[in-house]
Simulated scan of single mutants.
Amino acid sequence: MDRINDLAKTKAAVIFTKSSCCMCHSIETLFYELGASPAVYELDRDPRGRDMERALQQLGFNPTVPAVFIDGKYVGSAKDMDKVARVASENGVVIFGKSACCLCYTVNILFRELGVTPIIYEIDQDPEGREMEKAIMKLGCAPPTPAVFIGGKFMGSTNEIMSLHLRGALIPMLKPYQGFN
Rank of each mutant, 00 (worst) to 15 (best):
T106F: 04
A12P: 02
L34R: 14
T145F: 11
F180W: 07
S26N: 12
V107S: 02
P47Q: 07
L139F: 15
T158F: 11
V65M: 06
I95Q: 00
D51M: 08
I136T: 06
F96N: 00
R167V: 05
A78I: 05
V94H: 01
F149H: 01
K138A: 12
V65H: 03
N159R: 14
K83G: 03
L56N: 05
P143R: 12
G168P: 07
G97P: 01
I27G: 03
F31N: 03
T10S: 15
K134H: 14
L103C: 01
I27K: 04
G35R: 13
G49M: 07
C22Q: 09
F149T: 01
S89C: 06
E128L: 11
M162N: 05
D2E: 15
G60E: 09
F180I: 14
L34N: 13
R130S: 13
V116P: 01
L34G: 12
G72Q: 07
T117C: 05
G156R: 02
F16C: 05
I15H: 04
G140N: 11
I161P: 00
M23C: 04
H25V: 07
P144Y: 07
P127S: 12
M132N: 09
G140T: 11
D82F: 14
F96T: 01
K11F: 01
D44Q: 06
L164M: 15
K73V: 05
G151Q: 09
V68C: 10
K79I: 13
H25N: 10
R167F: 09
P176L: 13
R54T: 08
L174Y: 10
G152Q: 06
P127C: 06
L164G: 02
M81W: 14
G49S: 08
V84K: 01
V148Q: 00
E53V: 05
E33R: 15
L110I: 12
I161D: 00
M52F: 09
C102K: 13
G152S: 07
M137Y: 04
Y121A: 03
M173L: 15
I150W: 00
L30M: 15
A67F: 02
F111G: 02
R112Q: 15
N108S: 13
V116S: 06
I109A: 08
C141P: 01
P176E: 12
S26K: 15
A100K: 12
K9P: 02
R112C: 06
I150V: 11
G140Q: 11
V68R: 04
A67G: 10
A67L: 05
L56I: 05
